[in-house]
């Protein structure tokens, strides 16, 4: 009898352990938003699908060109390295005589191949590069959710950022001759919110 009781309590400990491990795994990999809410399989699938639409926008030249994997911004619809040897600089605003806003004005300069403009034109800073280029959907989604990699933002702040930030919106006003992202901004915002609302689930790959 004693043996059976011991066995049972051992089983209970194992079970508790398994539950703990799974729930902490859930918290880390698919942080529910709002926290504590659980999501059905169909919600999770909807979340992943929405992120894939978001991903296509984030990887379009209008977004990715300023989220390069190196320290040189990218240019053009073919995302070539920025000419003139432009580099990021520690604050993301360029260096010395090669600061972004020396050429990029508060508004687009009209004409083909003229510098596009925005009052906030810059790259992410050197200590928080927020690289998009080369990331898989899963990697990019994980980065967006991680405050250590997303500019110390909560998910609510990220949603606010992609909805209202002037430089994000500038992607849809790219200046003459440049392609816009594959979704409109309202569509993009909706997909982003759907991703988050349904659990901000990471895509499989």
């Amino acid at each position: 009898m004693k043996m059976i009781k011991q066995l049972r309590s051992k089983k209970a400990i194992y079970l508790a352990g398994i539950i703990l491990v799974t729930s902490s795994y859930t918290l880390i990999s698919e942080e529910p938003i709002p926290q504590g809410k659980t999501y059905s399989a169909s919600e999770k699938a909807a979340s992943q699908k929405a992120f894939l639409a978001v991903y296509d926008v984030l990887m379009s030249p209008r977004c990715m060109n300023c989220h390069p994997k190196g320290d040189v911004p990218l240019q053009g619809d073919d995302s070539h390295l920025h000419t003139q040897g432009v580099i990021r600089g520690s604050d993301g605003h360029g260096v010395y005589a090669m600061k972004c806003t020396n050429c990029h004005q508060p508004k687009n300069t009209p004409g083909l191949n003229m510098p596009p403009g925005n009052p906030k034109w810059h790259l992410p800073p050197a200590d928080m590069k927020m690289v998009f280029e080369g990331k898989t959907p899963r990697e990019l989604a994980a980065q967006l959710k991680d405050p250590e990699q997303n500019g110390h933002k909560t998910m609510a702040e990220i949603v606010d950022h992609i909805s209202h930030d002037e430089l994000v919106l500038g992607g849809w006003n790219p200046g003459d001759g440049r392609k816009k992202p594959p979704l409109t901004h309202p569509q993009f915002e909706k997909e982003f919110r759907d991703w988050v609302k349904n659990g901000a689930v990471l895509p499989e790959k």
Binding site: Q84, N102, C103, Q105, P106, T109, G111, P115
Partner: peptide, 26 residues
């Protein structure tokens, strides 16, 4: 005249802006 060459560089509040694309309003 398109911010490509630097010949027109002047300082605006100490920064080396390209005056061919910097409008007077700025």
């Amino acid at each position: 005249g398109m911010a490509q060459c630097g010949a027109c560089t002047v300082h605006l509040e100490g920064e080396a802006v390209r005056s061919c694309v910097t409008l007077i309003a700025r």
